[in-house]
Design a protein around this nucleic acid. Sequence first.
DNA 1: ACCTGAACACCGTTCAAGT
DNA 2: ACCTGAACACCGTTCAAGT
Lengths: 248, 248
Amino acid sequence: MGRKPNQANAVDAARKSKNGTSGEKSLNRELIVSAALQFIDKFGEEALTMRKLAEVLEVYPTTIYWHAGNRAQLLAAVCERVFAEIELPPVDDTPWDEWLRVLAQSVRRTMRAHRNLAPTVSSQIQVTVGSFPLIEAILDVLSSAGFPDSDLPFVYNTVCNSIFGFVWVELNAEPSGADPDWAETFQQRLLSVEPADYPVLARAMPHLAGKTLMLRWQSGDRQPLGDSYRYVVDVLIAGLKEKLATSA
Amino acid sequence: MGRKPNQANAVDAARKSKNGTSGEKSLNRELIVSAALQFIDKFGEEALTMRKLAEVLEVYPTTIYWHAGNRAQLLAAVCERVFAEIELPPVDDTPWDEWLRVLAQSVRRTMRAHRNLAPTVSSQIQVTVGSFPLIEAILDVLSSAGFPDSDLPFVYNTVCNSIFGFVWVELNAEPSGADPDWAETFQQRLLSVEPADYPVLARAMPHLAGKTLMLRWQSGDRQPLGDSYRYVVDVLIAGLKEKLATSA
DNA sequence: ACCTGAACACCGTTCAAGT
DNA sequence: ACCTGAACACCGTTCAAGT
């Protein structure tokens, strides 16, 4: 099978310096993941190719495979790195609803710092040991809030969908291959919706155009939906309180 | 610029039969989009290449470009097709909360019928004229429920995140390039979490493993999260009712 | 253990023709 | 208007060596 050090078990962080005395490291997995993240932050996920990344690292493409596995595995590692970057609010005596609000802002801040990765992280199942502290914190807070263990999966999924899911949708990608004047064209079509065909849509369009899902032509990167996010978290917390009240 | 019939404006559905009398159509945009959707349903979005699709259609790859534009545009058209497939509950005197519940189930049913497309549709901004009826219906119901026009964008985004966002996250893709025994490995690691390190996680693991975001090794395709979805919609509706009550 | 070098089997997309 | 045919400039990935 030819075991290769793709997994954490072999991350011995060997710092064998090629030139002996100097502190200069040789290439390792960490460095590759960092370089990949930087590259994606700059040029987007689609632009990242194994060959270009190798060029940046001044190495042959095959070297990347040896350290970090194939492209899919590399992307997974990059996602894990970003997840680990999320600042966890301390689990102390902060009320659970307040804690969730702080976490939400923290998640959004981190994802916006790596907006180009949002489509990738959202479209993959993310199962990484690196996010255990984050998950534990969420579960701890929810459990302390009074939710029984048997409800935890539902509550936890609901919380994740509001806090992570919204930011992913907010930051999803703009059409890349389309005409450059696509945005203008669509904007025009939105503003000229016939009230006869779509009365409510036409009436509320000034409030909606550009700021709502399926009615916008820019990513949340360029057109932030922070107010909606706050509303989402508000509704989440109000709904959870109702659940707590009726189940007790 | 060499206008090509990539857009709806040129879908004249020309049915020029090549052999004259027969009802046999020549290739057109509709047929290509259908074939692409079928292909993705069977083999996944990653497997769809312009060349393979051309092979299926018994035509040269360039023909697809002429009718449907490049790959990104083709995928956008496929997404639009799926959106149009969502069955809209009638907007009559059904209470708004009940209507949202029915819509939610309808959305989930359609997306599960095209599970392989979920990552694609979720990672792209979807701005299509074809979904105007869907959007109008949602806005109509929310407006009738009593939400003022100025709040509609927030409420609408919140509703979309619960109803669409969750299903997309539920159906996101399993790691493709990883080892075949990855699932088993991760499952093992989950079940052997140290209570000393992650007490709540370890305690609730029997309820969580395999059924919650970031703690599962299968897509919602193979491990449905229907109960969580119901909970998400419950919390959404309870939260919205609270918003209605306090703003009135 | 770590990296080079070359090669394989593909891609998306474009361009010049055909009819 | 619609399609063929060939070509360009890339890809991810593997395999056999090197040190």
